[in-house]
Simulated assay, not measured.
Amino acid sequence: MVFKSIASTGLLALSATQFAAGVLADAPTCPKDTPLSCSTSSEQASCCFNTPGGSFLQTQFWDYDPATGPSNSWTIHGLWPDNCDGTYEQFCDSSREYSNITAILKDQGRTELLSFMNKYWKDNSGDDESFWEHEWNKHGTCINTIEPDCYTDYTAQEEVGDYLQKTVDLFKTLDTYKALAAAGITPSTTKTYTLSEIHDALAAIHDDFAPYVACDGDNLNEAWYFYYVRGNLITGEYEPSEKLTQSNCPDSGIKYVPKSNGQESTCPNRR
């Protein structure tokens, strides 16, 4: 698995300018024998151990009506710290809830990140900024290893940029569209697929662990890839893991609807 060694650097999509500026330079580096998240219930929360949210989900959308993002790519939903039993905390720190994500990223010089988000992290109602704010405020504030005290030279909102960058970095390693296409699963108005076929195709890019996939009726529209993390969320090692949620898709007859220009969304409410 190539990804684990790359992800442990926490620098997958950073430009040379950002690296030189010290982005992530003060995020904790943890001992190699740090326990894997969810591996023990006795480990106390620290900047090197994620708890209670020790199962991390890189989540993606296939928005087809109305369509969002490129026609040959899924789009980002978020990065969620779920508890080890499939439950989750939410909106954990009201003092760090923000409504100016674009401004935060510009102030941090993360223009490449912002450009990528504008293309691949899309809201199905057209309000990308509010979507990003929601994901940080609801999920990002619940990650204990990126709290301000975990930084050695903390600057305001540093963890926000780090969280969004990590979400994008993970997304770039999980090309759901390409993985499905490699297995002959392509958007179609006539073809249908089985849940087993979809699971097998996506397990091929996730160390043989099938992600959770969701459907709106019979129509495929979400994928959640599960990980455990050894160490800090930003600098730690990500290990693919078994999904903790079972699909709501039927066993067969699943449609993979091509993206359209429809005006009414048929997708369910977002988490």
Rank of each mutant, 00 (worst) to 15 (best):
C92P: 04
M117Y: 05
C84P: 02
K122P: 03
D128T: 04
T75S: 15
T167M: 09
W80S: 04
H139E: 06
C92I: 04
G126D: 12
I101M: 13
L113P: 00
I101A: 10
C92R: 05
N124S: 09
C142S: 08
L105R: 00
L79Y: 07
T75F: 02
M117H: 02
I101T: 13
E112K: 15
L174H: 11
Y120W: 14
F116A: 08
K138A: 09
T145V: 06
T145E: 05
D93A: 12
S95L: 11
V160Q: 10
L180W: 00
T102G: 13
D82W: 00
N144H: 09
H77M: 04
N72A: 12
W132F: 08
E159P: 02
A103G: 13
F171W: 14
C142V: 09
G140C: 15
L79M: 12
E159T: 04
S71H: 10
L180N: 00
T176E: 07
S71M: 15
I104P: 00
N83D: 06
D107F: 14
D93G: 09
D128L: 04
D127C: 03
L105K: 00
R96P: 02
Y177T: 05
Y163G: 06
L170D: 00
H139M: 05
W136M: 07
G161K: 03
H134S: 02
I143D: 15
N137E: 02
S130W: 14
G140W: 06
K122D: 08
D169Y: 06
E133V: 02
D82R: 00
L174C: 12
E159M: 05
T111M: 12
W80L: 04
Q157V: 14
G126M: 11
E135N: 04
T145P: 07
Y88V: 12
I76E: 03
Y151M: 03
E112Q: 09
T155A: 14
E159D: 14
N137W: 03
Y120P: 00
Y163R: 13
Y88I: 08
A181M: 01
T155L: 09
E89P: 08
E147Q: 08
L113E: 01
Y98V: 14
C92H: 05
Y120G: 01
Q165A: 14
T111S: 08
G86N: 03
E147R: 15
K178H: 06
Y151E: 01
S99R: 09
P148R: 05
V168D: 01
S115I: 03
N137G: 03
C142H: 04
